Amino acid sequence: MVKLKEGQGMAGVMDSVNQRTQLVGQNRLELLLFRLDSKQLYGINVFKVKEVLQCPKLTIMPKSSPVVRGVANIRGGTIPILDLSMATGRSGLSDLSSAFVIITEYNTKVQGFLVRSVERIVNMNWEEIHPPPKGTGRDHYLTAVTHLDQQLVEIIDVEKILAEVAPISEVISAGVIDVETQGKAVTKHVLIVDDSSVARKQVTRCLQSVGVEVTALNDGRQALEFLRKLADEGKRPEDEFIMLISDIEMPEMDGYTLTAEIRADSRMQKLHILLHTSLSGVFNQAMVKKVGADDFLAKFRPDDLASRVVERIKVSDEG
């Protein structure tokens, strides 16, 4: 039996994005809670979820990753269905007839995640979401954890899973960086913030191909403390870094709140901020404007990201 908010049927699991955008910018999020084959609770940001439904008929895809249990025809589109249990190193779900699929959108791609059961939606603050405990191993699949009713809720690093099932090319196309800009890049420094280890590595490798130096941090609070320390030492962040590239969804403090905090501090408000996220939807453009970021880019497009960095190298060189 699927447990949801009172008076909320399966068809009503998802409210319209418009009703949820009020949470964004307040360091808040809503998590859809689900289970795989154990008692462990997992959570996924509702903004990533398009729909929840009983597992439909799956068509097996030859030569695909074992994690992809098949494809399903949903609302006229063919969507790959990934077994989240198998993707995180456990055995796959056995009885699919009683399983559910969470249809999600990450990095502008739509896929379904096969889960045992869907519980309910909870409204939380990013300050209650913490990085995974140290010592969970280098290959762990968690990007964050939180507690709810004295139960641990694990938030899976979906970007890591997707990168393993369908690796994204990190190669920058010829012509994106000219020789002159690459020569100037070596004296430039970029600060990046992302809670996903896979995303941090993707962005770092892309920027290193451009030629800039990279400092990578894990969440918004860590980044804010780092920038405040620089300012306390009398340094101007905009002189130290040509730009900050920040994820939006992060434990402790999200990218919107980080941007608003930077803009509220006269010592660092001139730092160029690019929000870089796997969240899709037009609401992001409005939020970027509202919190005072300079730019917004959907993950992960190496050419687009490299182009933004190249622009900043040229602007900073003129300055």
Rank of each mutant, 00 (worst) to 15 (best):
H140W: 07
N73H: 15
V176R: 08
S266H: 13
L279Y: 00
V210T: 06
K39V: 14
G175A: 10
A216G: 11
S117V: 06
V13A: 09
V122I: 15
G112Y: 02
D178I: 14
V110M: 02
P62D: 10
A174L: 06
K289P: 00
I168L: 04
Q22H: 15
V288W: 00
Q150C: 15
G70R: 09
I81L: 09
I121V: 15
D303M: 06
A216Q: 03
S280L: 10
T88L: 05
Q111M: 07
G89D: 11
S85T: 12
T104V: 14
V186E: 11
L82T: 02
R138E: 14
Q150V: 15
A199Y: 02
V176N: 03
G70P: 10
I245N: 02
A144C: 01
A306F: 01
D157Q: 08
S307A: 15
L162C: 04
K134V: 14
G43R: 06
Y141M: 14
E164L: 08
D83N: 08
N218P: 13
D317M: 01
R312W: 06
W126P: 06
I81M: 06
V176S: 09
V214W: 01
L142D: 11
F241K: 02
L33C: 11
C206I: 04
P237E: 05
S278V: 03
S173G: 01
A87I: 09
F34M: 07
R75V: 10
Q202C: 02
S98K: 13
M61Q: 14
D294A: 03
I245V: 15
S278T: 01
L207N: 02
L84D: 03
V52T: 00
V198T: 14
Y256S: 05
E213K: 13
V52R: 07
T277V: 07
S307G: 14
V153I: 15
L207T: 04
F296S: 08
A144Q: 03
N123I: 13
R20K: 13
V210P: 02
L58E: 08
A185M: 13
A293N: 00
G12Q: 12
Q54F: 09
L152C: 15
R116H: 13
A298V: 02
P56W: 09
Q222K: 12
H276T: 10
L227V: 01
L274A: 04
M250Q: 04
K314G: 03
D317I: 05
T277D: 01
T146D: 07
D295V: 07
